[in-house]
Every structure is written in structure tokens, then in C-alpha cells.
Design a protein around this nucleic acid. Structure first.
Lengths: 226, 226
DNA sequence: CAACTAAGTGTATTATACACACTAACAAAA
DNA sequence: TTTTGTTAGTGTGTATAATACACTTAGTTG
């Protein structure tokens, strides 16, 4: 219940969104970071983010910023947590609603990456010096991903439309941080109908061709996975 | 990354916290609501909430408001979700971080309840006309409680220090919305060492006295429960 | 055609989940 | 003091799910 509609005199709390965009690239779980060019946090890395406008919802702000700063649209996006510590930004009081996004290894934003040295994918296991409380946000995001991959189908956000079961298993292993048994993994994944065969195969190198699969659903869904 | 520290000219988004306080009372999962006395939402019910001050974190704001408006301190409290729809409050743009609190049937705030007709426990299954998006907040809170009771020890927030296993089971049944087998429930609860015997018993009515138990830990903890 | 590489497959064992019904301890009433 | 009523408390067998584990297959390359 809000009795005052006018803000506390003379100042107000800024509301921002910051998004942790994750992808599995080169055998590691990575997050997209931008290097700050000026101000008290110059040289440090931060998540893509920005202030919420008066005429957009939090979700819309997250989508807009994702599009403007990271050049990605139409990807898996969910709210993660809201960080509201008093000292989280030395420049002034702010509250940030963090979002959590997944992109597949296809759309690794190569154009953006090539031309800017101040935007890069960083291994979540070896983060650089980060601004604000963004290291904490990444950490909460990794925890969420790690737990959610076990009871939902969100892995679809990290894979292209078609993939082999070995590729899928590798994604699970990288996120969970430990190896999985090939036969048990395939049995489980197929039992719960997380994926379906496409009928196609893919030849990679000098070995037996692998069957290609796709997710049965590309909408968030909870299922017992691992 | 925030490039502007100054807010959009002439106006700003208000940041509030609203808390859904749950308790199991008279065989139902109930939430504490306050009736709004004036303004466009007059007569509707809302969660206890208020604006975040410049010098307090979100968590501190939630605790302060809980204490001021509901008269409770030192209870289970966790952040639930942040609601940031453009039209959530007809009086102006606001963002609200919702919290989720649990109180045990002991501390049902009887003093507050007796003297005010505009503050009451409502069955979550039969909510009155509610202001803002607070019905949605309650619904998200109930979902969170229902899912979290299955893999954590948060039930401790809903029970007094000492209780019988039947009382504990009843709380689980009310929250989950279905009955549980007595023997399997007790076996599981004791196997995972969620609770321990106190050595005391309690006589209630004309039947065999029940042993009293207490939680092994009164800090949030994840454990496989049901 | 031999050697290499990754794909693909089945079974036995163990642990966990679930279904299910009677006895025990106390109070109150006859 | 015995019977009746009421809730507390307990164990086992069965079904399902989780885990551990090694060889064969289909292709490419030399």
C-alpha cells in the first residue's frame, strides 16, 4: 500500500536493469561483458544494462537494452533477482533488476565481438575486475542456470535448432561442472521426451555420423531432467 | 552499465516493496492484507508495503515496513519477484519488489487483528478484491511456497519452536493441497533429519500424548523433503 | 583393407518412492 | 475398574527410478 505518491524530496532512486547473457562457447560457460570507458568504474567490466524508461515495463527495458547494447533479439530471457544495496553504485542510489538470458553458440554476436575490444565473452569461472555488484549478479545467474537445467528444458536456449546428443550432453556437463554417463544421459533425455529425432544426420570429421535432434518444445517448461 | 546518473527529466519511477506474509491459520493458508482507506483503490485490499527510502536497502525497507505496518519482527523473509508493469498503479509509475514472509501460528498478531477491521488474514484460496497487481503477487508467493516446501526447510517459518509431527504434516498438507501418508511422511522427515525430538510430550485432549519436535536448523537450507 | 574416431546401444544392481493396517497411550464416561 | 473414544505411533513388501558399467557400429583417412 503506497500512501505517498510523491517521491522523497529532492532526490530519487534510479531503477536499472542489467542482463547476464550466458552462452556455452569453446567448452566454457561464458557471460557477455562490456568494458566501461569512463567514470569511477573506468576499465572495469559490467553487464549490459541501463535505466528503465518511464513508458516501458522492466521486461521491455531488458529486451530493449539487450537489443541496443548486445545486438540480440528473441532469446530466452527471465528475471533473476533485484539488487538494492545502498552502496552498490558509488555515483548514487540505484536499484537494479537483473535478468538472465541464454543464447546459443550459433548467434555468438560475431560482428559485435570482432569490432569492439570493449565487449567480450568471459569465462564465468575466471571473471575480470567487475564494476558495481555485477560479479554477484553473474554468480547468482550461474547458480540459477545450474539448478534450473536440472528440472526444466531451458537448455534449448543454449543450443541451435538441431544438434547431436553429444553436443547436448556437453552443454549439460559444462554447466553442471562434472561428467555424465553417456548411456544414462541419453536414456533419460529420450524417456522424458525432451528432444525428438529430426531424421537428419551430421557428419563431423572421420567418424560415424551423428543423428540430429531438436527440442520437443521451445517454450520454458518444467520437467524432471537430471 | 549506467551512463546517465541523472533521472529522466521531470519525473521518476517510484520504487516500493510489498510483502506477502503467509501463515497457516484455522486449517488454511492465509495472507495478511490491509484495506485501503482512501484514493482510487479505496475499499480494496492490499499487501503491506511502502516506498523504499534513500538510505535503506530493499531488504531493510521490507523489514521496516513489516515492523511498522504488520508489527512483526525477526521472521522468515525472502525476495520474491519484482513487478514493473507500466500500468500497475493508476496513480503513477512504480516498480515494486515483492517479498515473501512466513510467520507461525503462535505470533498471529492478535493485538493488531482485534482492534482494526482494516487488517485481516485472508484465505489464499478466496481472496477479496485487491488493489494494484497484488493478487498476482500473492499467487506467485503461493506458488513459491508450494514448490519450496518440497526441497527446503522453510516450513520452520510456519511453526512454533516445538510442535508435533501431526501438526507439521498438517502444514504440509494445507500448503500442498493434498493429503500425505502418515508413515511415509514421518519416515522421510526423520530420515533427512529435518527435525529432532525434544524429549517432551504434549497432551491434547483425551488421547495419547504426542512427542514434541523442533527443527534441526532454523536457517534456510535446501534438503530433499517431498 | 587396416586403423582411427566418435556414435550408438542393454543389463544387472541399488536406492528410493509408494501403498497399506494395526497397536499403543491416555482421558472420560459408564 | 472396565469400556469406549481419540489421536499417536510403527514396518514391510512392491514398484519405480537411479546408477554403474563395456562393447559394437558406421563412417573417414592413410
Amino acid at each position: 500500500m503506497k500512501k505517498n505518491v510523491t517521491p522523497p524530496l529532492g532526490q530519487s532512486i534510479l531503477i536499472a536493469v542489467d542482463t547476464a547473457i550466458f552462452s556455452v562457447i569453446d567448452g566454457a560457460l561464458r557471460v557477455l561483458l562490456i568494458r566501461i570507458g569512463s567514470g569511477p568504474y573506468e576499465g572495469k567490466w559490467a553487464l549490459p544494462g541501463g535505466l528503465v524508461r518511464m513508458d516501458e515495463s522492466l521486461d521491455q527495458a531488458a529486451e530493449r537494452i539487450l537489443s541496443e547494447k548486445a545486438g540480440v533479439d528473441d532469446i530466452y530471457l527471465e528475471q533473476l533477482f533485484t539488487f538494492g544495496g545502498v552502496d552498490r553504485d558509488v555515483r548514487g542510489r540505484s536499484v537494479s533488476t537483473a535478468y538472465f538470458a541464454l543464447v546459443n553458440s550459433d548467434r555468438c554476436l560475431p560482428s559485435t565481438i570482432e569490432y569492439y575490444s570493449d565487449i567480450a565473452w568471459h569465462d564465468t569461472a575466471h571473471l575480470p575486475k567487475m564494476a558495481f555488484d555485477h560479479a554477484k549478479i553473474v554468480s547468482v545467474g550461474v547458480d540459477r542456470l545450474r539448478s534450473k537445467i536440472g528440472y526444466s528444458n531451458i537448455a534449448y536456449g543454449l543450443l541451435p535448432k538441431e544438434f547431436t546428443l553429444t553436443e547436448l550432453q556437453t552443454v549439460y556437463e559444462i554447466i553442471l561442472g562434472h561428467e555424465l554417463d553417456k548411456r544414462n544421459f541419453r536414456k533419460k533425455i529420450l524417456d522424458i521426451e525432451l528432444v525428438k529425432e529430426t531424421g537428419k544426420v551430421r557428419q563431423s570429421g572421420q567418424s560415424r555420423p551423428a543423428r540430429l535432434y531438436s527440442f520437443t518444445a521451445r517454450k520454458p517448461k518444467t520437467v524432471e531432467v537430471l
